[in-house]
Design a protein around this nucleic acid. Structure first.
Lengths: 153, 153
DNA sequence: CCAATTTAGTTATATATCATATCTATTATG
DNA sequence: CATAATAGATATGATATATAACTAAATTGG
């Protein structure tokens, strides 16, 4: 007679007690919520998080190169190419050859790009105001400081 | 004569001033750092974040079903299948048929699975201790509370 | 009781993300 | 001037994530 399968019963409630001890777990779960809402916020503009981020950085830093942008976004250069391709195809930015270095492109927002960027930033501001409505200014400031510290580590 | 390309010069430093106003941006950047270090931490165990998470949850909740686990991890059931396949192939867990519901599997950790889980959790604890060395207990607790609030929103 | 529906898991598929190697054109260096 | 380094692009592979549709089993409602 085989040994009994020692009480196979599904737990009523799944416990994440071990994972909860980790700050990274809480960061991941919270960021998932933020990103889901951000994705929905950017959808009307036909932007994703990466294309939005690239567009904002190009508008804030007109003339920067793809290498500079990839470094700022902390992604690999090959992965930036398709993002820039998309923004250029939609005529939100231009690749302009740099006279002093004909290998590099200066990324310049078009008027349409600047307008879309402004609208998207405003929408993201509203998204954050809604999402973080429970956070007072102190919590928010403390959070940013703590996250910056982690990022800097 | 074409209009001059109005001072195309690459910025010396790329500014992220607009993005910095957003909490989500700081969350993403900080989590990138955490995840990169976590990935390196789990590498010696041949675990990724998802396989690690699944293994820990199975050890904490032996007997749970794939549907329960997918819900707990907030991923789609089809995407869980390959994760469970991998853990089972490595004999870290077993799929055991539930007598009372022969559609479902009860996920049970093996002895090797429990051991690997313990070691991995200890390594992740060390990883967090190192990564968050600049955070005192108050900051850490405040952070978890804030993140939980965001997640709950 | 049995037909219809629902559920658990799987398969197939498509898209997005992210890393590495390699290629070209161009620039910088010894 | 030959060599090395850099900017961008291409190709490729691994991972992550979402949806539709399938099989087998359980539940339901007439």
């Amino acid at each position: 007679m085989p040994a009994p399968e020692q009480d196979i019963k599904q737990p009523t409630r799944v416990s994440d007690e071990t994972l909860r001890r980790f700050l990274g777990y809480h960061m991941k779960r919270a960021f998932n919520v933020v990103q889901a809402d951000l994705t929905a916020t950017l959808k009307p503009f036909d932007l994703r998080m990466l294309t939005y981020t690239a567009l904002v950085l190009i508008c804030d830093n007109p003339g920067l190169s793809q290498t500079q942008l990839a470094a700022a976004m902390d992604i690999e250069r090959p992965n930036l190419v398709v993002i820039i391709d998309e923004l250029e195809r939609r005529e939100l930015i231009n690749r302009t050859r740099v006279p002093t270095d004909r290998r590099a492109y200066a990324l310049i927002p078009t008027l349409a790009g600047k307008r879309l960027c402004e609208q998207a930033v405003a929408a993201v501001q509203a998204h954050e105001a809604k999402l973080f409505v429970g956070l007072d200014d102190d919590m928010r400031a403390a959070m940013i400081e703590t996250l910056s510290k982690v990022r800097g580590t």
